[in-house]
Simulated assay, not measured.
Amino acid sequence: MSGQPGVDVPDHRGRTGLDQAGRTLDRNPDVVVRDVELTSQGWHVLRRTTFDQRRRDGRWSTLQRETYDRGDGATILLHDAARSSVLLTRQFRFPAYVNDHPDGMLIETAAGLLDDDDAETAIRREVTEELGVTVGPVTHVFTAYMSPGSVTEKVHFYAAPYSPADRTGPGGGVAAEGEDIEIVELSLGSALAMIDDGRIVDGKTIMLLQWWALTTS
C-alpha cells in the first residue's frame, strides 16, 4: 500500500510528517486540536485543521480552518536620510495581477523567505541579491502576521541606512529562481504620494514607509 507524499513517504522536496504541524499545541486552554489533514504540498503546504474552541459564553464549537504555510519572511527599508530617499524594488507579482492589479508590477521593499537562516541573515542576503547593496547595522522595527486568517507567515521588518557607496553589486534578483527585479530609488515624499494615489499597494512596503515617515517627522 502506497503512502501519502509529505505524510508517511517523502514528497518532491523530501519532506514527511507535514500533517503533524499544530497537533500538540496546548498554549491556549480554550482550543483543542483534533485533526490535521494535508491537502496540498506544492512548494509550500496547505493544511486543513479541525479543532474545538470554547466560546466566550462557555459553549464549545468544532471548527475547521485551512492554513497556508510558506515559512516566515523578512523585509527591509533602505533609507538615505541625507538625501531623504528610499531604495525599493519593482517586480511582477502574479497573485496581484490575477486579482485586479493593472499589470502585476509591484513596487516593494526588498524581502524574502528565511529558508534555514535567521531573520537578519536572510534579509542581508535578500538586500544583496535584489538591490546589490551591502548594508551595515540594521534595525529590527517589528514582527507582524500579515494575513492571520489563513497564512501562518510572520514577517520580520527591518530598516537600515544606505548611501550610493553601498551599492556593491548589480542586484536584480537571482535569475536561476526566475527573478527579474528593477531597482527603484525614490524620495520619501514621492513614495508616500504613490501610496496615496495607488501606485504603491504592497502592505509591507506601506507599513515601513509610514514607519519611516513617522520616525523622521
Rank of each mutant, 00 (worst) to 15 (best):
Q4E: 06
G6D: 11
R13G: 02
G14V: 07
T16W: 02
Q20E: 05
D26K: 14
D26R: 13
D26M: 10
R27Y: 13
R27I: 10
R27P: 08
R27N: 13
R27S: 15
V31W: 05
D35I: 04
G42T: 14
H44R: 09
L46V: 11
R48H: 08
T50V: 07
F51P: 00
D52M: 01
Q53L: 03
R55L: 00
D57W: 00
E66S: 14
T67R: 13
G71A: 12
A74I: 14
I76A: 03
I76S: 03
H79Y: 15
S84D: 15
S85E: 15
L87P: 11
P95S: 08
Y97V: 11
V98W: 09
V98A: 14
D100M: 05
H101Q: 02
P102Q: 00
P102E: 04
P102G: 02
L106H: 05
A111G: 11
G112T: 13
D115G: 12
D117H: 13
D118E: 01
T121F: 00
T121H: 03
R125M: 00
R125A: 01
V127A: 10
E130L: 14
T134E: 01
V135A: 09
T143P: 03
T143M: 02
Y145K: 05
M146Y: 03
V151C: 03
V151E: 06
V155C: 08
H156C: 03
Y158P: 09
A159R: 03
A160V: 12
A160Q: 07
S163V: 07
A165G: 06
D166Q: 07
R167H: 15
G171P: 04
G178W: 09
G178F: 03
E185D: 10
L186P: 11
S187E: 10
G189S: 08
M194F: 11
R199A: 09
D202E: 15
G203E: 13
T215A: 12
